[in-house]
C-alpha cells in the first residue's frame, strides 16, 4: 500500500529506516524530498532524522526511538503481566493467565535445567526474560506492516515519519542484547575460573604448548567475539528477512486487484509460517544464551 508518489524502492527503504533521534552538526545541509537544500543548521541540533542520510550522518550518538520504545513497551508488558501473575499466584489450582504463565515458566525451567547444571539464580530468569521478550518483539512482525507506521504518521502529522515496529529487525536491539549476554559470559567466566583460569583457557586451548599461545589467542578470541556477534546477527537476520518478505508482499497490494488478492493469500501463508520462525528464533536465542552461560561455568575442563 505504497502512498502515491512513492516509488517501490522508496517504499521499501522507508520501511527499513528507523526513527532516529540524534545530533546534527553545525553547518549541516538538510535536504527536502526532492534533494534540494532546504535549510542549513546554524548550530548543533538534536532532532529527528528526516532522511536515511541524515540518520547515517548522526553517527553513534543517536537513538532509534521506535526500536527502544517498542522494546521497552513490550518488555514492560512482559514484566507487569508476569509480576502480576507471580504476585497473585496460588499453589492451588492454577487458572487462566496463571496456567499460561506457568506453562512458559515450566518450559523454560526444564530447558534451562537440561543444559545448565550449575547453581545460579540469574540464568533461568534471564532465559525466561529473553524468550518472552524476544518472542513479543518478533511478534510485532505479524502486525500488518503498514498499520502502525501509518497510525504513527497520523498521530504525529508527519507523512514521512520513519517508524519500524519490530525491534528485532534493528541490529542495535539484537546486538545490544547479545552484548549483555557477552558481558555476563565474561563476568561468570572470570568469577568461576579466575582471571588466570580465563586467560589460560584463551591462551592454552586448543594447543597446549607455549609456542602456540599467539595462535591459540587468535583462535579463541575470534571464537569468543563470534559468539555474541552470531547470537545477535542470527536473530536480526532471520527477522529482517521475514520483515523484508512482508514488505515485498505488501507491495502487491498497490499492483491491482488480482495481485492484491494473491498478496493477501501470500501474506497469510507467510504469517502462519512466520509464527514458527519467531518462536524458534526466540527459543534459539534463549538456548544459546543458556549454553554460553553453562560454558562460562564449566571449570573442570582441563586442556
Amino acid at each position: 500500500m505504497a502512498s502515491e508518489g512513492q516509488s517501490v524502492t522508496g517504499y521499501i527503504q522507508h520501511h527499513l529506516q528507523n526513527l532516529a533521534y540524534g545530533k546534527l552538526p553545525e553547518g549541516y545541509e538538510r535536504l527536502d524530498a526532492e534533494g534540494h537544500v532546504s535549510s542549513v543548521l546554524t548550530q548543533d541540533t538534536w532532532t529527528i532524522a528526516h532522511t536515511a542520510q541524515e540518520a547515517a550522518d548522526m553517527g553513534f550518538w543517536a537513538v532509534h526511538v521506535d526500536t527502544l520504545g517498542w522494546s521497552l513497551a513490550l518488555g514492560s508488558i512482559f514484566c507487569l503481566v508476569f509480576a502480576r501473575v507471580a504476585k497473585n499466584a496460588t499453589a492451588g489450582v492454577p487458572r487462566g493467565m496463571q496456567s499460561f504463565v506457568e506453562l512458559i515458566v515450566e518450559f523454560i525451567n526444564s530447558t534451562v535445567n537440561d543444559t545448565f547444571h550449575h547453581k545460579n539464580r540469574l540464568v533461568a530468569p534471564m532465559a525466561l526474560t529473553i524468550f518472552v521478550w524476544v518472542f513479543m518483539m518478533n511478534l510485532m512482525d505479524l502486525v500488518p506492516i503498514d498499520w502502525l507506521p501509518l497510525a504513527a504518521a497520523q498521530v504525529t502529522g508527519d507523512p514521512h515519519l520513519f517508524f519500524k515496529v519490530v525491534p528485532t529487525t534493528d541490529p542495535n536491539a539484537t546486538l545490544g542484547m547479545a552484548i549483555g549476554v557477552f558481558l555476563l559470559m565474561i563476568f561468570f567466566s572470570i568469577k568461576n575460573k579466575g582471571i588466570g583460569g580465563f586467560m589460560r583457557e584463551l591462551a592454552l586451548h586448543p594447543f597446549n604448548h607455549p609456542v602456540m599461545i599467539p595462535f591459540n589467542l587468535f583462535l579463541e578470541i575470534v571464537g569468543l567475539i563470534a559468539k555474541p556477534i552470531s547470537l545477535g546477527l542470527r536473530l536480526f537476520g532471520n527477522l529482517y528477512a521475514g520483515e523484508m518478505i512482508f514488505i515485498l508482499i505488501a507491495l502487491l497490494y498497490s499492483a491491482g486487484l488480482i495481485w492484491g488478492v494473491g498478496g493477501a493469500i501470500m501474506q497469510l501463508g507467510w504469517a502462519i509460517f512466520h509464527i514458527l520462525v519467531i518462536t524458534l528464533q526466540a527459543f534459539v536465542f534463549m538456548v544459546l544464551t543458556t549454553v554460553y552461560m553453562a560454558m562460562a561455568h564449566d571449570v573442570d575442563e582441563e586442556h
Binding site: 522494546s71 508476569f82 509480576a83 533461568a124 529473553i130 545490544g176
Partner: peptide, 30 residues
Amino acid sequence: MNINLTLIGQTISFAMFVWFCMKFVWPALL
C-alpha cells in the same frame, strides 16, 4: 541500519528486565 546509542540502550533495558524478572517474577512463580 546504523549502529548507534540504541545498542547501549537496549543492553541497559535488557539488564533491567532480567533483573526485574529475577527479583519479582521467577522466584515467586517457581
